[in-house]
Simulated assay, not measured.
Amino acid sequence: MAHAPTLPEHILVVDDDSRIRQMLSRYFEEEGYRVSLAGDGGEMRECLDKQSADIILLDLVLPGEDGLTLARDIRARSDVPIIMLTGRNDVVDRIVGLEVGADDYIAKPFHLREVLARVRGVLRRRQPRSLSSVGDPQSEIYRFEGLRLDVGRRQLLSDDGREIPLTTGEFDMLCVLVKHAGRVLQRELLMDLTRGRNLEPFDRTIDAQIARLRRKIERDPNQPALIKSVRGVGYVFSARTTRHEA
């Protein structure tokens, strides 16, 4: 039986600057992606109603609804990866963007190769790995506090089989914490392990990602028992974990 051809991955670019939209469209289409364009929230929703996206490049400053509002709307109904594009070098904007569920951010002006690398990185981390290889580190399963973390399938499940939806960034963060359970991890190391780049001065994006993760896995996010803060250093995953091969 012949298999249907696999469609190229679909990128939705949401930016009110037509020059940036066209520049990104040409570049990513030359790289083999499908690209849709939107100039505001209304056009974005029209695109998403017609077809799903594999990743969204979302400008922070838009006419009408801004990027943060749109990110909240997207995240309320989908776990599609979001990379925020921001022309403002404001740490607060970046933190809020991650708090509402963005997976990464890129400051303008940007290099197209950097955008491509970030997009590929997010999509690669989101893609489930094969579980057929014995001893494949990606086939690991971790159990802790009534939860089951399946690294290969990129799923977090409760004991009753309910899936707990995580963004790409949240899943990557939880994997790093669980695999290093009991070890205090500095913010700089967490940034390096989850995003492959160093923290900028006064960057608190790791804190924002941890706060979102706590709201999803802690019984009481205000009194966390799984992900504990180590003042002035970073975080430690304190739950007892067991590791299995899938």
Rank of each mutant, 00 (worst) to 15 (best):
I56L: 12
I141S: 06
A2P: 09
F110H: 00
L70H: 09
R197N: 07
R215F: 04
G234S: 13
A4R: 14
R143N: 12
P165A: 11
V61D: 14
I217F: 02
P201L: 11
T205H: 00
V91Q: 10
S229Y: 02
V122F: 07
R125L: 05
A107M: 13
F202D: 08
D17T: 12
E46F: 15
R75T: 14
N222Q: 15
R124L: 11
L60S: 04
V61H: 15
V35C: 01
R125K: 04
L48Q: 05
L177V: 03
A181Q: 00
V134Q: 11
I74M: 05
Q223L: 14
V230C: 00
Q51T: 12
F171T: 00
D49V: 08
D160L: 08
P63L: 10
R214P: 02
L68Y: 10
V119W: 03
N222H: 15
E114F: 12
T194I: 11
G182Q: 02
F144P: 01
H3E: 15
D79W: 07
I20K: 00
H111I: 05
M191S: 09
R219T: 04
Y235L: 12
E188W: 12
D73S: 10
H111N: 10
L24W: 02
S130R: 06
R231C: 03
L226H: 02
E218N: 13
L190N: 07
L24S: 04
